[in-house]
Amino acid sequence: MKQQGMILWLTGLSGAGKTTIAHGVAQKLQRRNYRLEVLDGDVVRTHLSQGLGFSKEDRDTNVRRIGFVAELLSRNGIIAIVAAISPYREVRDQLKQTTTNFVEVYVNAPLAVCEFRDVKGLYTKAQVGQVKHFTGISDPYEEPLNPEIICQTDKFTPQQCVNQVLHYLEQKRLIDFYKNLMQISS
Results as ranks from 00 to 15, higher is better:
residue 3 Q to L: 09
residue 3 Q to D: 13
residue 3 Q to N: 14
residue 5 G to S: 13
residue 5 G to M: 14
residue 5 G to T: 11
residue 6 M to N: 04
residue 6 M to R: 03
residue 6 M to L: 15
residue 7 I to M: 03
residue 7 I to H: 10
residue 7 I to K: 03
residue 8 L to T: 00
residue 8 L to F: 02
residue 8 L to S: 03
residue 9 W to A: 04
residue 9 W to C: 01
residue 9 W to H: 04
residue 9 W to F: 12
residue 9 W to M: 06
residue 10 L to M: 15
residue 10 L to T: 07
residue 10 L to I: 09
residue 11 T to F: 14
residue 12 G to A: 09
residue 13 L to G: 04
residue 13 L to I: 01
residue 13 L to C: 07
residue 13 L to D: 08
residue 13 L to F: 01
residue 14 S to E: 02
residue 14 S to N: 03
residue 15 G to A: 09
residue 16 A to C: 13
residue 16 A to Y: 09
residue 16 A to T: 10
residue 17 G to F: 14
residue 18 K to Q: 09
residue 18 K to Y: 03
residue 19 T to K: 00
residue 20 T to M: 08
residue 20 T to A: 11
residue 20 T to S: 14
residue 20 T to K: 11
residue 21 I to N: 09
residue 21 I to L: 15
residue 21 I to K: 13
residue 21 I to G: 05
residue 22 A to F: 06
residue 22 A to E: 06
residue 23 H to G: 01
residue 23 H to F: 14
residue 23 H to T: 12
residue 24 G to V: 11
residue 24 G to C: 14
residue 25 V to L: 02
residue 25 V to M: 07
residue 26 A to Y: 01
residue 26 A to Q: 06
residue 27 Q to G: 13
residue 27 Q to E: 12
residue 27 Q to I: 05
residue 28 K to E: 15
residue 28 K to D: 10
residue 29 L to V: 08
residue 30 Q to V: 13
residue 31 R to L: 14
residue 31 R to N: 13
residue 32 R to W: 03
residue 33 N to G: 06
residue 33 N to M: 09
residue 33 N to W: 09
residue 33 N to C: 08
residue 34 Y to E: 12
residue 34 Y to C: 05
residue 35 R to S: 15
residue 36 L to G: 08
residue 37 E to H: 06
residue 40 D to N: 09
residue 41 G to I: 06
residue 42 D to E: 09
residue 42 D to L: 02
residue 42 D to Y: 10
residue 42 D to Q: 02
residue 43 V to H: 10
residue 43 V to G: 03
residue 43 V to Q: 13
residue 43 V to W: 05
residue 44 V to W: 07
residue 44 V to A: 12
residue 44 V to R: 05
residue 46 T to D: 10
residue 46 T to E: 12
residue 46 T to H: 14
residue 47 H to T: 08
residue 47 H to E: 11
residue 48 L to P: 11
residue 49 S to L: 08
residue 50 Q to R: 14
residue 50 Q to N: 12
residue 50 Q to S: 14
residue 50 Q to G: 10
residue 50 Q to L: 14
residue 51 G to M: 00
residue 51 G to K: 05
residue 51 G to F: 00
residue 52 L to S: 01
residue 52 L to M: 06
residue 52 L to R: 07
residue 52 L to V: 00
residue 53 G to K: 10
residue 53 G to W: 04
residue 54 F to H: 05
residue 54 F to E: 02
residue 54 F to T: 01
residue 54 F to V: 01
residue 55 S to R: 13
residue 56 K to V: 15
residue 57 E to L: 02
residue 57 E to N: 08
residue 58 D to T: 06
residue 58 D to R: 04
residue 58 D to V: 07
residue 59 R to G: 01
residue 60 D to H: 00
residue 60 D to I: 00
residue 61 T to L: 07
residue 61 T to E: 13
residue 62 N to L: 05
residue 62 N to P: 04
residue 63 V to N: 11
residue 64 R to M: 00
residue 64 R to S: 02
residue 64 R to A: 06
residue 64 R to D: 05
residue 65 R to T: 06
residue 65 R to C: 00
residue 66 I to F: 07
residue 66 I to G: 03
residue 67 G to F: 05
residue 68 F to V: 04
residue 69 V to Q: 07
residue 70 A to Q: 00
residue 70 A to C: 05
residue 70 A to F: 02
residue 71 E to Q: 15
